[in-house]
Write a protein that binds this DNA or RNA. Structure first.
Lengths: 126, 126
DNA sequence: CCGAATCCTCTCTGATACTG
DNA sequence: CAGTATCAGAGAGGATTCGG
């Protein structure tokens, strides 16, 4: 897939655009709440209130904000049931599920090195 | 290692402490710059200036701040060579390397679903 | 070259109140 | 119940400067 390039060729610009997009996505997702929401959703379908109970410490506002962002990026699906009282459910899409798997890896890592980190902190805090 | 527990036993407190510690570590690491620094280090040893060139867009201050945090958590090792001009080198420790592998997974995910995400965004932005 | 401290700006975050 | 708007306080992040 390596093609010969001229100076200032369009494909170079494409690569730069893809890179900046990747960076943008990275910035979106590399935040505490987004990752915790994805973990909380897991394989289940949850309502707004259920999610707020599940993700400990998140505010109403942050939850809304992050849910919008995740929906925009196609990681979660939002279905509104036109009933009263309103019922809105969230579930992970296939890309979202794929991401959750890698986040699981992060959680595993955290638990495996928990002790390691704690002792390292104590040594550092002198 | 599973021991019998009484109600309100000390181990329950331990579990809560470990959970809050895990949450804290999660908050530390779930940020753009920390992940990009770890990726930049990879298997190599880099100086402060080299790292700043490698991690595009990071400021002097943010780099310092995150390097301290990563060092405190035992993810990177900092070696000072007492010469003039000063020479300070950073390298990933074993836990850091392990974390890098899971971050690689995140990068793979980003590139795999790049198109997916871009179209989802366009659909959302109406 | 590397790091710490200062200042200044701007975004994020939480609390509250209001609509459908 | 779910979502939006607004406001004030806290905190992140950038630029700069000085010291080792």
């Amino acid at each position: 897939m390596v093609t010969k390039q001229l100076a200032g060729s369009p494909d170079e610009a494409d690569v730069r655009r893809a890179d900046s997009l990747a960076r943008e996505i990275f910035s979106d997702l590399a935040n505490k709440w987004a990752l915790l929401i994805i973990e909380a959703l897991g394989e289940s379908t949850l309502r707004f209130g259920e999610l707020r109970d599940e993700v400990e410490g998140i505010s109403h506002k942050m939850l809304t904000q992050n849910l919008r962002m995740l929906e925009r990026n196609g990681l979660i699906e939002r279905t509104v049931h036109p009933v009263v009282p309103p019922r809105v459910e969230y579930t992970l899409t296939e890309p979202g599920q794929a991401l959750r798997v890698t986040i699981d890896g992060l959680c595993d890592w955290t638990h495996r090195y928990l002790g390691h980190i704690e002792t390292s902190r104590h040594r550092f805090d002198d």
